[in-house]
């Protein structure tokens, strides 16, 4: 019972994060929402472990925390390089007419 308030708050927050993921508008907003959903899942797992008397759920929480982090980093790398390519293509297109050089941006 004493975990119910926390679990309810976390669940509602997950819904709010889903709402943000649906609203967007940019892809980074969606990644932010998914990352938030992931950390809330970790908290919900930890709370469930105690509410239902299943301590092994804590192990799931640890695993989820790590996988969520790696997943977010991987997805970001993907979208970031896509954005860079888009910017390069745009610069190349405008370089046809003018003196705009290629983008100086690099991953490092």
């Amino acid at each position: 019972m004493m975990f119910a308030v926390g679990a309810a708050a976390v669940t509602i927050t997950m819904m709010l994060a889903l709402l943000r993921a649906l609203l967007g508008p940019s892809v980074y907003d969606r990644v932010l929402a998914v990352n938030m959903l992931g950390t809330k899942t970790v908290l919900l797992l930890a709370l469930t472990a105690f509410a239902m008397g299943r301590p092994d759920f804590i192990d799931l929480a640890i695993t989820y925390a790590l996988i969520n982090f790696i997943g977010v980093i991987a997805v970001l790398q993907f979208f970031y390089s896509r954005d860079l390519r888009k910017a390069e293509e745009r610069a190349a297109k405008s370089a046809h007419g003018g003196a705009v050089g290629p983008s100086q941006a690099g991953p490092q």
Partner: peptide
């Protein structure tokens, strides 16, 4: 184990946030 969960969250949280902010900022 809960201490470890907290430590992971506190270490990976800002790292993921920085990766996100930096990717969005450099991505334009």
């Amino acid at each position: 184990k809960i201490v470890l969960v907290a430590a992971f969250l506190l270490v990976t949280g800002p790292t993921a946030a920085y990766a996100l902010a930096n990717a969005a900022f450099l991505g334009g």
